[in-house]
């Protein structure tokens, strides 16, 4: 399945906190081609996570427009937004984001349970993904029993479960040591390439960033008002 193009136009994002308003993005523009693999860099607080949250439909757009594969996210609300996340986006988090009460297999199956997929179909696909990320031998372990690298492989399998056309990875190797990080990145690279999904990865590591088609740099612009 091919990836989606992304068009971010004039997006501004401002959080109001007790300490005052925080402007994270101001008139931000970004165009990503379908299937492009992009590294997002920038210091902490620059708004990298916020950008992913906006593109992934986790955060409401305040100003500007974000169009993903022809869908204007500003027009999506409630169930439609949930359906967008379910059908189009696969997330990989720095903290893995696995549900602690479910086994690796169940975590992957859960991600397929918000559409009309049969449980048999889910099971089969989960097995396929477990094999693909090389974690089948840990299928019935809970996250607490998995190493960081193993957890992130499971999380990647989960992100791929619904054949997303957009993969969003927020510092996917931030909690992993060098060698493990390298292998997870390879896997992310390969699976994204295999599926043709557009890939946006936030990273602090220039060596990591160099693997990608393009690198963009976000600068913090914190203006208290």
């Amino acid at each position: 399945m091919a990836g989606v193009p992304i068009s971010v136009r004039d997006v501004s994002m401002r959080y109001s906190t007790r300490g005052g308003a925080v402007e994270v993005l101001a008139d931000f523009d970004l165009a990503v081609d379908a299937g492009e693999r992009l590294a997002i860099m920038g210091p902490s607080g620059a708004g990298k996570t916020t950008l992913l949250a906006l593109i992934g439909g986790l955060e409401a757009i305040q100003r500007g427009s974000i169009v993903v594969g022809g869908t204007d996210l500003a027009h999506l609300h409630g169930d439609a937004l949930a359906a967008y996340r379910y059908q189009t986006v696969g997330f990989v988090f720095q903290h893995f984001g696995l549900l602690g009460n479910l086994s690796a297999r169940e975590n992957i199956e859960l991600a397929m349970s918000f559409g009309g997929r049969s449980s048999r179909d889910r099971r089969a696909r989960a097995q396929l993904l477990l094999d693909a990320v090389g974690i089948a031998h840990r299928a019935d372990h809970r996250p607490a029993e998995l190493s960081g690298g193993e957890s992130q492989r499971v999380a990647l399998a989960r992100a791929l479960a619904n054949e997303p056309r957009l993969l969003l990875a927020d510092e996917p190797t931030g909690n992993l040591d060098g060698e493990t990080a390298e292998r997870v990145l390879e896997l992310l690279d390969r699976t994204a390439a295999d599926s043709g999904a557009t890939l946006l990865t936030v990273t602090h590591d220039p060596a990591v960033a160099r693997r990608f088609d393009r690198i963009i740099q976000l600068e913090p612009r914190v203006i208290a008002s």
Partner: peptide, 16 residues
């Protein structure tokens, strides 16, 4: 909170 957020990120609707 975070797990609930993750649930939503992977496609759970409010009603789920």
């Amino acid at each position: 909170r975070r797990e609930i957020g993750v649930l939503k990120a992977i496609g759970a609707r409010d009603r789920d």
